[in-house]
Design a protein around this nucleic acid. Structure first.
Lengths: 153, 153
DNA sequence: TTGAGAATGAGACTCAGTCTCATGATAATC
DNA sequence: GATTATCATGAGACTGAGTCTCATTCTCAA
């Protein structure tokens, strides 16, 4: 995905919704535009505070993420790590889920067409009008497996 | 599933692990044994405090849930509601996932063999040694659809 | 330039979950 | 039955995510 394109699209969506521009929102948009996977709100707050970028208060981070979620420009991702993560909404072919390493907390994206088909089929059979789905696979990443494994000693 | 059987099994597992018996743990086990779906720790704390059952402190609730998780008698379930839920570990054929109503917060169990097959196939193809998986479908439950829908006016 | 109203920051607040430590209960031993 | 080591428990302080309020700053249309 084009990062800049996403930032522009989001700014246009905000303008269309009658929102004025602001420096805090611009900083959050640019940060999200650079990411390849989901961030937590505290990560966003720290990333903006700790760099040359403009610092943005916690309240503003949450407010901006809520607005963007309302405009379908970001989506919430729950990886079972006690914090909600947020990421840019992707184009259809980039729809993905997450692998989470229980040992080091690493979050990686993955996608699988067969799984998506299974989910679509299932959605018709459950007593719920399904709007979204979320799949998280949990285990040990390559690095933690290597680190944890006995290495021939 | 037999509720009492699960409670007995859990107590035996605890005894086998060298644990002494205690009233708080007994109360938590009995409460979990009566449930059909996942509860949060605060729900457990409140349920035990508000009834004729023995009240159990928050620290004990978390401690007991951790122990039971370590013995594979309960499992954590993340439904994206900002709180971890816990439920009894079921026999194989009862393995299930969750439907969550975004409007009223209702959590319902569901299971689907085709989905399980898709997940097993996928687990071999990702760069993670998959230990668990979690699937949450989110949307509107029947009741909220009815309540929200215009009824012929 | 001005003013209405949106955007923002500061920080108090709520609540889930963790941690520590003093006290209570259990069960093995005598 | 008494003793005692040790586990189980409760109370409550503490941490950190997320919410809320309100005063201040900024945007932009007039």
């Amino acid at each position: 995905m084009s990062d800049e394109r996403w930032v522009e699209t989001a700014e246009r969506a905000l303008a269309d919704a009658g929102r004025k521009r602001g420096g805090a929102r611009r900083a959050v948009l640019e940060l999200l535009g650079e990411q390849h996977c989901a961030l937590t709100a505290p990560e966003i707050e720290r990333a903006l505070a700790g760099t040359a970028k403009r610092a943005v208060s916690r309240a503003s981070v949450y407010r901006i993420l809520d607005e963007l979620e309302g405009l379908a420009m970001v989506q919430r991702v729950d990886t079972g790590q006690a914090m909600v993560r947020y990421e840019r909404v992707c184009t259809q072919e980039e729809h993905h889920h997450h692998l989470v390493c229980d040992k080091c907390g690493l979050v990686m994206p993955f996608s699988d067409p067969a799984l998506e088909r299974a989910i679509r089929g299932l959605s018709a059979r459950v007593p719920l009008a399904v709007a979204e789905h979320e799949i998280v696979l949990r285990g040990s990443c390559r690095q933690c497996q290597t680190a944890g494994a006995p290495t021939g000693s």
